[in-house]
Design a protein around this nucleic acid. Structure first.
Lengths: 192, 192
DNA sequence: TTAGATATTGAGCAATCGTTCAAGAATACG
DNA sequence: CGTATTCTTGAACGATTGCTCAATATCTAA
């Protein structure tokens, strides 16, 4: 009876994430979305309900992918090297477009407007920080980090450095590799 | 012959800077500005030409005030302590509203749209970084920083940490004081 | 006091915003 | 083939966007 949708919902969310990520919430118009997703308004609203709902999906996907990447890194290299590799990955030569963290951008744009989206981005950032803290804690238990350090504090510091590093990718003349290296050696200094 | 404007142009720019700073470029509507500045459209456009021109003035003022604050700090404390105090000032108890750097926010919002405003914010950020580098260099000449360090690299690192620190002020549960202390001790480690 | 110049006002412009919805196209089952 | 069900289309809505401009108010200099 029913025809199936002509689009792949998942890849639509991916494309929307990229668009929102690079143009921001209010910088992305419905016309932009319709063009990028090749969807006429009716289909768009049937599929996603509203611009805000799609943005929420994009935030969730972004955070989930980040968490998954970090998990993979930990499995192959252990907790401390995972954090280091994560840091360096944003300075890798082929590291894609220059853009900061989507969550940070969302918080900074939407926080004041007490939009639910700003709160959601904040929550996801908190979750990321908790993940960092857990990694630091496991590194500590494995003897890679001296016991006098507080994992939560290390996580906040790591997150701040990561944020600054990723913001720096916007600016042409900054040597992001050197920057990432500096922060990576900070991690080495945590050894007992 | 002419009546003088009923407003104080300088304080209007101040108020506009605050508004743009907290709501962003596209988050701030002309209606918002008219209300905050108590200006009807005609007066607004007579005074500033356009929303974009006022934003440019706000960016310039913001950067100038930052530079001046740093200069003052250097005169009273010398180069390295000025950098340290600057860092800590954003974590001070009465440090005002929670918001990141206006220039960073502007770059991140406007860079993709190749708006002249994004480029302007980028240039001002470069200037700030150059100022940091000059301070590190003078600290080096004064023997406060070991000679093997590259002032420019130190400046980029400092700027990234400052950016991350200020972004963290958006998020409630982060201990910004501890964060600033961590970055301040990084500066202490530069001693010869 | 009056003439000249400038400031202020506010209605309203064209364009765009996010969104709705009735009509038509497309598909799978009987 | 026919019918039921869903998807797609695109015109159009009211609200808001940044901005213009003729009319009016206000002040200064002569």
């Amino acid at each position: 009876m029913p025809p199936k949708p002509a689009y792949d919902r998942d890849s639509l969310i991916d494309r929307a994430r990229d668009l929102f990520w690079s143009k921001g919430w209010s910088g992305t118009s419905m016309k932009d979305l319709e063009r990028a997703l090749n969807l006429r308004p009716g289909s768009f609203y049937a599929a996603f309900g509203s611009k805000a709902r799609l943005y929420a999906l994009a935030l969730d996907r972004y955070a989930a992918e980040g968490a998954e990447a970090l998990d993979t890194l930990e499995r192959s290299r252990g907790p401390l090297d995972a954090l280091k590799a994560h840091l360096l990955s944003f300075a890798a030569p082929g590291a894609g477009a220059a853009r900061g963290c989507f969550l940070v951008r969302s918080v900074s744009e939407l926080e004041g407007a007490d939009s639910p989206l700003g709160a959601q981005a904040g929550t996801l950032l908190d979750a990321a920080e908790a993940r960092f803290a857990a990694l630091f804690e496991r590194a500590q238990q494995a003897g890679q980090v001296a016991p006098q350090h507080d994992p939560k504090r290390l996580a906040q510091r790591y997150q701040a450095q990561l944020t600054g590093l990723r913001a720096a990718t916007h600016r042409a003349h900054v040597d992001v590799r050197a920057l990432a290296q500096d922060f990576a050696t900070d991690l080495d200094r945590l050894a007992p």
